[in-house]
Amino acid sequence: MSFWTYFHKWGSPRWFYQFSGRLMPWLAIPAVVLLLGGFAWGLAFVPPDFKQGNSFRIIYLHVPASAVAMGAYMLMATAGAIHLIWRMKLAAMVMKSVAPVGAALTFLALLTGAVWGKPTWGTYWVWDARITSVLILFFLYLGILALQQAFENQEAAAKACAVLAIVGAVNIPIIYWSVEWWYSLHQPASIKFVGESTIHSSMLRPLIATLTGMYCFLGWMVLLNTRNEILYRERNTRWVKDVLTGAGS
């Protein structure tokens, strides 16, 4: 199969709907097993960090949430670029599906980070470089969601969000670097961070499990949302009617 027929196939919502239906269990089952298993493992079976005590167990939720939130933004920007360059409608649907999931995960990363901070270094919030960067990522997501809702025309909303997502993705390295720089200028001497550098390999394994599980979860949610979007946009076609009356899969 040549590249272009392959590409064409990927652009077909109908093909993607059927393909994603087959793919979904392969994401859903690992997501549930790895997340719940990894949480239980990290909560009950791993020895505590000898500096931070038991509060470090939040890491198994916090780190996957922030890593996948960042990855989701890149996925969104890539889908937006594909939509703008090749006019692939499916990419627009994927982009729209990622945004709420990414925003929710960023929120979760901020909240767990704050709750982790209280017992570990005595305060819920520090204007530390990494926390500030995640906060800015959250703002970028909110901007995308706000722009999406402001348009009545679906097509225009998708394109506008694609432009904004790409601009954001180009800016993220600059923003992160400038925040690092800003923090190194103002670093307060009183707060010493006890970070992941002390992590032991027995603590790392559940982290890898939940990290993988979270990526699977993102994929699962994106597929669910994209399938919904496909059904909605193609609601007047024959095949969607067949799918819903049980004639097709």
Partner: peptide, 10 residues
């Protein structure tokens, strides 16, 4: 003593 923080997060 860290229970409330950990369990709230999860």
């Amino acid at each position: 003593g860290h229970g409330p923080y950990v369990w709230f997060s999860y």
